[in-house]
């Protein structure tokens, strides 16, 4: 009886989501008037879950991510997250005045990690993204793929429960992207981080996610959701991935046609 009570108390105090998006709308004022970009979005990301947010360009998926990151405020509705989320951008966003290692250490410092531990932690994170030896490298000395690895390590250095990713691999070549998909899946499974990953690439969405959420365009609404139960590790060329991608692409095309904007 006592344990049951304790459990119940636990369930009410501990947060059962990494992010909770409730009836969120967002509009911007443009010269043409008020434009509704996101319309009544409700979405939960469970702890440890990997969700991809899929949509055509301009559908508001990056806007939604910015709202979750706290970089902007919703016009209506509410967003709560379990702690401050980490955010990774399409551009690496590494600071060119710091080395790769010091970029990671800055994230550690800002979250209050003691000076003595930072170096070791940074080296560990670099090892996690398989960049041992890159500690002293300047940002401009790294390739595009390596920069995104460092950016991932820096995001992980925040030790957030939730990692937001805004098309982080879109600017990379296909082979590098494929390798980084493997790395991301591995790291996600090794850590208990939840991921909300924005992309316009259907295959990428299916390759990575446990759940794919399709956003419609103008305004962005949740159009459809798929649970992806293909076992990890997956490959982007797996037939199961291809099959589901075809189905999702059909739906996505329907969304784009309906709005006739593209």
């Amino acid at each position: 009886m006592a344990t049951a009570l304790a459990k119940a108390a636990d369930a009410t105090t501990s947060v059962e989501y990494a992010a909770r998006i409730e009836h969120v709308s967002k509009s911007f004022t443009t010269p043409a008037g008020r434009q509704l970009v996101l319309d009544d979005i409700t979405l939960d990301v469970a702890p440890g879950e990997f969700v991809t947010l899929l949509g055509a360009s301009g559908c508001g998926k990056s806007t939604l991510l910015n709202l979750v990151a706290g970089l902007d405020q919703p016009s209506a509705g509410g967003i709560s997250t379990d702690g401050r989320p980490a955010l990774m951008f399409q551009e690496h966003a590494l600071f060119p005045w710091l080395t790769a290692g010091k970029n990671i250490e800055l994230a550690l410092k800002l979250r209050g990690v003691a000076k003595a531990e930072r170096r070791t932690k940074a080296e560990e994170l670099l090892a996690l993204v398989r960049l041992e030896g890159a500690y002293g490298k300047r940002v401009h000395e790294l390739s595009g793929g390596m920069r995104q690895r460092v950016a991932l390590a820096r995001a992980l250095a925040q030790d957030s429960k939730l990692l937001l990713m805004d098309e982080p691999f879109a600017a990379l070549d296909a082979i590098t992207r494929d390798v980084l998909h493997d790395e991301l899946t591995r790291i996600w499974r090794e850590t208990s981080v939840s991921v909300l990953f924005v992309t316009h690439n259907v295959r990428e969405a299916v390759r990575l996610a446990e759940r794919v959420v399709l956003l419609s365009s103008r305004p962005g609404r949740i159009a459809h959701e798929w649970t992806v139960d293909i076992p990890q590790p997956r490959r982007i060329e797996d037939s199961a991935v291809a099959e589901l991608s075809v189905e999702i692409t059909e739906q996505l095309r329907g969304e784009i046609r309906r709005h006739g904007q593209h």
């Binding site: 990151a69 706290g70 970089l71 401050r84 989320p85 980490a86 955010l87 951008f89 551009e91 966003a93 600071f95 800055l106 994230a107 800002l110 979250r111 820096r154 925040q158």
Partner: peptide, 21 residues
Amino acid sequence: PLYLRAGRTLGATGLRGTWHI
């Protein structure tokens, strides 16, 4: 602006943002 946004997500706001970013 990307550096400022990256700084903010890392928790560098206010004076810390000025100093570090």
